[in-house]
Write a protein that binds this DNA or RNA. Structure first.
Length: 472
RNA sequence: GCUCCCUUCGUCUAGCGGUCAGGACGCUGGCCUCUCACGCCGGUAACAGGGGUUCGAAUCCCCUAGGGAGCGCCA
């Protein structure tokens, strides 16, 4: 039997991190076992489903690289099939028509709540002859006694008494099927062997098993994964910043970083923290999935993102970084090779947006000095080293404007003046970067280029003079 | 209210009867060093509480507390 899993979101919003992790687990499990992963859109709620949501979900999955083997299937295109199954259930006496009024149902519920029992339908219409031509819903005849056992691959054996379950609605009065019916029919029709989903569905599982049994189907294996909570331990919501997967892309996160972070949220393989997609596929195991909910922690995501920025091919990072430079109004083709900038800066940024921000100085003059840095390094004592550097650097031919040569020039100026390298490099750094943090001074000079370096040193000298004049 | 699920450092987790309760992020001390980072070395910090079972419990059982989910003509 080949493994088949499915991710079945309802298109009522974007793909959020919780859904993405569920999709990832489904994807990994299928891949690991050489099976298929299918995408199914559960759009039976005509009111709330939108095509924008469908697109947003697929965009998220594409970005993460969660390729599906089949689908997307849309439940709205399978209504005749659901109808046939409902008719079959009706014929076999396993479902019945119900025309209980909203008022009766509300009253029933109030009575039950008052009696401190679980509110549920009382089966009033089970044995009644309801006019098929008047408005009605179709309910499932749930077994009245016995227990349903869910042998969950993550939570273990969970038993539910049938007495706790009621006769749920399979078809609405407008003729559309409800979730519990369509899910069951699709999972069976699509040959799904393993249903991996959020644990908010655990309570639905016994009902679905009962329907499956009524249909003469063998239930699939189930695996209910715990929820993902916000950093404050509360349920994930917009309040927690970016919850949409593509929002993380826009914030400058790499898909492999988010995937790596997500796979470790609830799953582990000993002490290993970093997993390539290949390793995830090889090592993923439902038995190792945690039972408890976990909260989303941006610090760790940042750490992973930094790790991947630093250890990935600079050419690829440069390609992904380019649009972020664009958002800053910078055209990275006009200036140093972006991949070289990435190589120099990769260890300094947690996100691509941050990487773009700290690399802007390679392409355009900074607006103003960082106040503290200028105050500390652009002082009168720095005038001589800077003037000397300007003279020495000016003598370099353009083809000699290379890291190694530049390094020697800075070193020579320092030793000629009897100063530590830091006394020379720091003022120079502030002069050309605008602040006291950048890659090594030599590579920084190389990336900025000669014209801009000369220009910015002059600007620093003028700044020092102006400041001295102001003091006097 | 009823049913079901969950509970190890602040966070993610290892542990599956005998460990000084391990790792990672964060925070923090130091090293490296032209700055900032990176890297390296060290530190901080947890078994929700109470009963059992056992020679021995983070590990098994029960209770309590806390958290979550479901109880829709939503999915």
């Amino acid at each position: 039997m080949t493994v088949r899993t499915r991710f079945a979101p309802s298109p009522t919003g974007y793909l959020h991190v919780g859904g993405a992790r569920t999709a990832l687990f489904c994807f990994l499990f299928a891949r690991k076992h050489g099976g298929q992963f299918v995408l199914r859109i559960e759009d039976t709620d005509l009111e709330r489903s939108t095509t924008e949501s469908v697109n947003a979900i697929m965009e998220g999955m594409t970005w993460l690289g969660l390729d599906y083997d089949e689908g997307p299937f849309f439940q709205t295109q399978r209504f005749e099939r659901y109808q046939a199954v409902i008719d079959e259930l009706l014929d076999k006496g396993l479902a019945y028509r119900c025309n209980c009024s909203k008022e009766r149902l509300d009253r029933l519920r109030d009575t039950q709540m008052a009696a401190k029992v679980k509110p549920r339908y009382d089966g009033h219409c089970r044995a009644r002859a309801v006019d098929p031509n008047a408005p009605h819903v179709i309910r499932f005849s749930n077994p009245v006694d016995g227990v349903v056992v869910v042998d969950d691959m993550i939570r273990g054996r969970v038993a539910f008494a049938n007495a706790e379950l009621d006769d749920l609605i399979l078809r609405r009065s407008d003729g559309s099927p409800t979730y519990n019916l369509s899910v069951v029919v699709d999972d069976a029709d699509m040959g799904i062997t393993h249903v991996i989903r959020g644990d908010d569905h655990l309570n639905n599982t016994p009902r679905q098993i009962n329907i499956l049994k009524a249909l003469g189907q063998t239930p699939p294996r189930y695996a209910h994964v715990p929820m993902i909570l916000g950093a404050d331990g509360a349920r994930l919501s917009k309040r927690h910043g970016a919850v949409s997967v593509v929002a993380y892309r826009d914030l400058g996160y790499l898909p492999e970083a988010l995937l790596n972070y997500l796979v470790r949220l609830g799953w582990s393989h000993g002490d290993q923290e970093v997993f390539s997609l290949e390793e995830m596929i090889e090592l993923f195991d439902l038995e190792a999935v945690n039972k408890a909910a976990s909260s989303f922690n941006t610090d760790k995501l940042d750490w992973l993102n930094q790790h991947y920025i630093q250890h990935s091919d600079p050419l690829r990072i440069a390609r992904l970084l380019s649009p972020h430079m664009g958002h800053l109004g910078i055209d990275p083709t006009e200036g140093p090779d972006l991949a070289e900038v990435v190589s120099a800066q990769a260890a300094r940024a947690k996100t691509l947006t941050e990487l773009a921000a700290i690399s802007a100085f390679c392409y355009e003059d900074f607006a103003e000095y960082d106040a503290d840095s200028a105050k500390k390094h652009l002082r009168p004592v720095a005038r001589e080293p800077l003037a000397r550097l300007r003279a020495e650097l000016d003598m370099l031919a353009l083809q000699d404007w290379q890291q190694e040569t530049l390094h020697h020039v800075v070193e020579r100026v320092a030793s000629d003046l009897g100063l530590n390298l830091g006394k020379v490099a720091q003022p120079l750094r502030v002069a050309i970067v605008g602040r006291a943090a950048s890659p090594g001074i030599d590579i920084t000079l190389q990336l900025v280029g000669k014209p801009a370096t000369m220009r910015r040193i002059d600007r620093a000298l003028a700044f020092i003079d102006a400041r001295a004049a102001a003091v006097n």
